[in-house]
Design a protein around this nucleic acid. Structure first.
Lengths: 304, 304
DNA sequence: CGCCTCATGAAAGTAAGTTTCATCCGTGGC
DNA sequence: GCCACGGATGAAACTTACTTTCATGAGGCG
């Protein structure tokens, strides 16, 4: 190259496209044609082969290469991936219809999915943000030191309770959860100092759960409430209060988000407990995993 | 085994990376080596030439090409630009310590919470992105038209199954789920044309669930599989395949993320079904809500 | 034990990208 | 008017990257 191109080959932080259109006037006519195509639709250009792009710009491959060099790239492949990256970065807006939280009557499934996922993910994130690690720590402490743990929940929260119970059980802690109030009450009456009772209720107003928690507390057990509402009745009978952060929307659409938030909290507690004794936990997990192994069929293969 | 064509998502508009890690177990060993490199650092892989990548994965170029085809790409160049795009879109992770997916031994609770929440939220988002609305639509259709719906899941997925069952029941659909295989098998044997059977298994290899689904299918029921792995054995007995997108990390930490992802999918289906008949659904929800009202104590003083 | 299937990489083949070079065209000097 | 001269350009040679084909060998199944 005899000429002295003053291309500052350094980075073009503002964006490759901007960079290119900036030095467009300094390019030769044939290169300008290429540049214009690229700027007009980067994503499309990234998809094309060099011959293809050359043809589209009514020029030769050689010119395209020259263009690449002119804008500071090593060669065509590099330009291509940079363009693809650039095009992808132009982010799709968060999409207004999704943030509203509620689902419009005429919504199609794609919209429904987007809305639900958005709310669910937000609930999880926001729950984590507002969770107080100090309180969690105390709860973990209590669970680790407990000789027995009971978890209560009614309806949908009952699944979360069972899940927590199962998790604790799996790492070798003595844990229970109950499908009905009466059994739960009886069992709670047998708790004592050093035991832990966990009550889960999204609204914090579920009478059954509150009652059982109250019973447990009166017997000297440490009580934990997991609810979305920090000042709901359940918090009156709890030594420790953990809150989820599912923003209420519709009755129903809040339901699942809150479930996920509850599960996230439960998982945090679980991992916190498990982390207390890595060796023992790992052992327990391996053993239980092995136990179900014979109920699995040969792992995936075959084409579709 | 059955023969009918299966409707699945050949569709990864959302996360290519997620899509790849989902298929990982169904790939051959050599391809898995390639996949792991790609997933570990997509941007880097996009920069490499095929020979280079092959060398890094200790395999031949041919295998890399085969890998491209396995994940649905035309060839290596396409994979390359897709990866570049993907890597660019990938937002900077909130915190380096969080992205690993696994929890470092010395982590404190705040770290644990951040890690779990991040992974959970991601699983939900990515699942939604890769869910194929068309397949969902068909499943919803089937459920709406079904005279009876059964939901199967073992272990942790069993909770999800129950949750789904409860939701459907609540809006007036006849739905069942079963705590044990034998009951499930018996019940599945009584299904017929026009009924729907849903099997939930994270790994897609749970023998019990597969068996029950197979039974249901042989009786003429439409079968739906919900799994994280699009080519696992369960998909062989399913007319419709829905996938979650929980990236596998540790055995355990993947577990909860996948649960949340499953619940998100279930919720989408539920809302989809509910949306089919707004009036009737609303009525049903109001009635059921009223039914538990007497089990609530004076409502919460809500904060903002 | 023989047959089959499948994963795999070597090598052949094709396409993409890059370089070289002759040509063309305008410019300015003689 | 004619002749260098230099830059722009594309044809073609060339190189590298990508893709296909095929032989091999391992593992499974009857």
């Amino acid at each position: 190259m005899a000429k002295s191109p003053k291309i500052s080959a350094s980075h073009e932080p503002g964006g490759l496209i901007v960079h290119i259109s900036g030095l467009l006037p300094s390019l030769s006519p044939a290169e300008q044609r290429v540049a214009r195509l690229v700027v007009a639709d980067p994503a499309d250009a990234a998809r094309r082969t060099i011959t293809d792009l050359a043809t589209a710009a009514e020029t030769s491959e050689a010119t395209v290469i020259r263009f690449c060099r002119s804008v500071g790239m090593d060669g065509y492949p590099q330009l291509r991936i940079r363009l693809a990256a650039e095009a992808a970065r132009r982010v799709e807006p968060p999409d207004a219809r999704v943030v509203g939280g509620d689902i419009p009557p005429g919504a199609d499934l794609a919209q429904i999915i987007a809305t639900i996922a958005f709310n669910d993910a937000r609930a999880v994130e926001e729950t984590a943000e507002q969770l107080d690690p100090a309180v969690c720590e105390q709860v973990v402490e209590a669970i680790v030191g407990a000789s027995r743990i009971e978890v209560y929940g009614a309806g949908a929260s009952g699944f979360v309770a069972s899940d927590f119970q199962q998790k604790l059980h799996r790492i070798g802690r003595t844990a229970f959860s109950f499908p009905d109030v009466h059994t739960a009450l009886t069992s709670a009456a047998l708790l004592g100092k050093g035991d832990v009772a966990v009550g889960i209720s999204h609204t914090g107003t579920t009478a059954d759960v509150i009652e059982v928690l109250e019973q447990a507390r009166s017997r000297g057990a440490a009580t934990v409430a997991l609810t979305n509402f920090p000042r709901s009745p359940i918090t009156d009978v709890a030594d420790f209060v953990l809150t989820t952060a599912a923003r209420e929307t519709t009755y129903r659409s809040g339901a699942m988000a809150s479930r996920l938030a509850q599960l996230t909290v439960v998982d945090c507690l679980f991992v916190g407990v498990a982390a207390r004794n890595r060796a023992r936990t790992r052992k327990a997990l391996e053993v239980t995993a092995a136990a179900v192994q014979t109920h699995r069929v040969g792992s995936a293969r075959r084409r579709g």
